[in-house]
Amino acid sequence: MKIVASKPELCIGCKACEEACSKVLFKDTDAEKSAIRITPINGEGYDINVCNQCGECIDICPVQAIYRNKNDIVMIDKDKCVHCYACAGFCPLLAMRYHKDVVGPFKCISCGACTRACGTGAIFLEDIIY
């Protein structure tokens, strides 16, 4: 499967990825609605946080609303979701998102929009096998 991988040392903190993601997911530019998050680390570089599609959230969901699509990407079925956010609390990477204006959790769908917006190669799609 293709996941969003990163080389944080190349990140310049421009946050173009966040804006791109927010636009894809919600037609918005609010960085808080992005599934990828860039956080400065004490003025020295940046942390890049995004889902690695490990799928641990699949087994946590009480209503089987989380599944892998045909490309093995972990997706949320909004119709089934009961908004308990167990997936968000139990995400090893804390990469499942919540926003007060969004109904239910949301996450990276590995669409690659953020990687296309990145001008430094800090994030990129990578093929991996779990």
């Binding site: 908004h83 308990c84 956010y85 167990a86 968000a88 609390g89 139990f90 804390l94 919540y98 007060k100």
Partner: peptide
């Protein structure tokens, strides 16, 4: 918003 944030905090505490 507050309910979700309280819930997220406790989920994480349990995790």
């Amino acid at each position: 918003d507050t309910i979700v944030k309280l819930g997220l905090k406790l989920h994480r505490e349990i995790y």
